[in-house]
């Protein structure tokens, strides 16, 4: 997992629950990484999960809810850092459709060793979008939170319907989005 996500997680905890809480959480975590996390670095996925689980426990939130809130926060942090990817779009659907073939392409240019989720899109109607998400990391709640962040940014309501299923031995997750 890239360091930028760790940095956002730290920022999320510090902003939402305070610097002291962040200190407590990081001290309580058993991390494989000793040095501080930096954006372009690559760190074990387990370290992020350790931070998330410890933090969720310390702030008394269920892990899925913590991840959703962190996803929401992550969207705004990424949009603030990379405004050029968001600014050209006036609606959430057009923006979301660029994630796989524009944003992920650019991410790969910067970070060769990155492992990004795979998205597939289908459009059942003009105000609907189905994003099929596949990633070994299965960060479904984070993705839900990210979409909530997108909705808030574009000041639009996005109803999300989810389905998890298996195909050819792989687990997929559909985000059926209805824009209104």
């Amino acid at each position: 997992m890239k360091g930028i996500i760790f940095n956002i997680a730290e920022k999320f905890i510090a902003t939402r629950f305070g610097e002291e809480k962040l200190e407590q959480i990081l001290s309580a975590c058993e991390l494989e990484t000793i040095e501080p996390f930096v954006g372009p670095g690559t760190y074990p996925d387990n370290d992020l999960m350790e931070i998330v689980h410890t933090a969720a426990e310390k702030v008394d939130l269920p892990v899925p809810e913590f991840m959703k809130q962190m996803g929401h926060f992550t969207f705004f942090k990424l949009a603030e850092r990379y405004p050029n990817f968001v600014a050209p779009y006036s609606n959430p659907k057009d923006f979301l459709m660029t994630v796989d073939n524009v944003i992920h392409v650019e991410v790969r240019k910067l970070y060769r060793d990155t492992q990004l989720p795979v998205f597939q899109y289908s459009e059942p109607s003009e105000n609907e979008l189905v994003i099929t998400y596949y990633s070994k990391r299965k960060m479904y709640d984070l993705m839900e939170g990210l979409i909530n962040g997108v909705a808030e940014h574009f000041d639009t309501r996005i109803e999300q319907r989810h389905s998890r299923y298996e195909k050819d031995g792989h687990e997929f997750y559909d985000y059926h989005l209805i824009f209104s």
Partner: peptide, 20 residues
């Protein structure tokens, strides 16, 4: 103490980034 700690983390980050 807290600022000192932050500064030291930031310095360590700078070193890691420079190496990268």
């Amino acid at each position: 103490e807290s600022y000192k700690k932050k500064l030291s983390v930031a310095e360590e980050k700078v070193k890691i980034l420079e190496k990268m």
